[in-house]
């Protein structure tokens, strides 16, 4: 008698799937091996776990790590949201969403609240996440110490011995050169008071969202063949100095479309005379706020 396995292989007949591909593109053994690595990653928050990164139908640098992670955990009854720089409608986001629709036949959405799996490049949604949701981050360089130590053997030793002084050297250099910690994105963090991690190139504005999040956060780097994870309700603390504490970006203008003063704003150049707009980077968040602003009855 075999146990009933979750339905990650054969989708419902009603949903069309590209013929010739396994569910979610990857074969089952690969998915299992990635899931095993993910379990290790969840057990050791912030620690990088190597995995056998497969050839994907897009080149390295285009999110293959995130895609493999999503492909390994996504099930037939999941709802997927894909954002790129906060927007659902950029080329990359659209392509990845279409890819998964083709090979999984699953439901996709642009609404953060509706999604069960959210794959992202470079932003965390403004809308607070909830338990049961999974964030998948696309990571270019997983190693926070790479800039100061080119040797992989040495950085692994440094992680195992908690020798993280070098990272503070970088922050020191920033303050020396720019008067403040200039790292604007991919700001290094300490996870669970033990491992130093790169949260992927999200703006530092988003770092606080990682701390004690109810969602499961998975990070995949395809080219570097590493993944790591932050389980729900784990402490994530951004590095700083006592006399230069961690701070987030601020704008002196609200969003042009929805008026929000609390979201991350993109700067958009509108004409050749230097005209510019600031609008929310998170399109779903902005759209929902705009919808709430419209008086009832109007289209």
């Amino acid at each position: 008698m075999t146990a009933k396995l979750p339905n990650t292989t054969t989708p419902d007949a009603a949903i069309s799937v590209e013929p010739g591909f396994n569910f979610a593109y990857l074969d089952e053994q690969t998915k299992r091996s990635i899931r095993r690595s993910l379990l290790k990653a969840v057990a050791i928050p912030g620690h990088q776990i190597p995995f056998s990164s497969r050839e994907m139908p897009m080149s390295y640098g285009w999110g293959t790590g995130g895609i493999q992670v999503t492909a390994s955990v996504i099930g037939a009854d999941d709802t997927l949201k894909v954002i790129d720089q906060g927007a659902d409608d950029t080329t990359n986001a659209v392509n990845i969403r279409r890819f998964f629709k083709k090979v999984c036949g699953i439901k996709t959405t642009e609404e953060t609240t509706e999604a069960t799996v959210i794959q992202t490049r470079h932003r965390v949604p403004e809308t607070p996440l909830r338990e049961g949701q999974t964030m998948v981050y696309q990571v270019p360089i997983p190693e926070p110490l790479r800039w100061i130590e080119p040797s992989e053997i040495e950085t692994r030793k440094m992680h195992s011995l908690s020798e993280y002084g070098a990272m503070h050297v970088k922050l020191y250099e920033d303050i020396t050169r720019f008067g403040h910690i200039a790292t604007a994105y991919d700001y290094p963090v300490m996870v669970n008071d033990r491992y130093m991690m790169r949260p992927s190139p999200i703006p530092r504005f988003d770092n606080p969202k990682l701390n004690m999040s109810p969602a499961l956060q998975l990070f995949g780097a395809g080219r570097e063949k590493r993944l790591y994870a932050v389980p729900p309700y784990t402490t994530v603390k951004s590095l700083d100095f006592e006399d230069h504490p961690f701070s987030v970006e601020q704008w002196d203008k609200p969003c042009e479309f929805c008026g929000s003063t609390e979201s991350y704003l993109d700067e958009v150049v509108t004409d050749n005379e230097g005209g510019r707009l600031w609008i929310c980077s998170d399109t779903d968040y902005c759209n929902r706020r705009q919808a709430q602003m419209k008086p009832v009855g109007e289209k």
Binding site: I148, A166, V169, Y172, F241, E242, D243, H244
Partner: peptide, 19 residues
């Protein structure tokens, strides 16, 4: 890294966190 950072590194390694 700068001369100052070279000297300060050992301090930062041993937990000093005041710039």
């Amino acid at each position: 890294v700068t001369a100052g950072a070279n000297i300060g590194e050992r301090l930062m390694d041993t937990g000093h966190r005041h710039y």
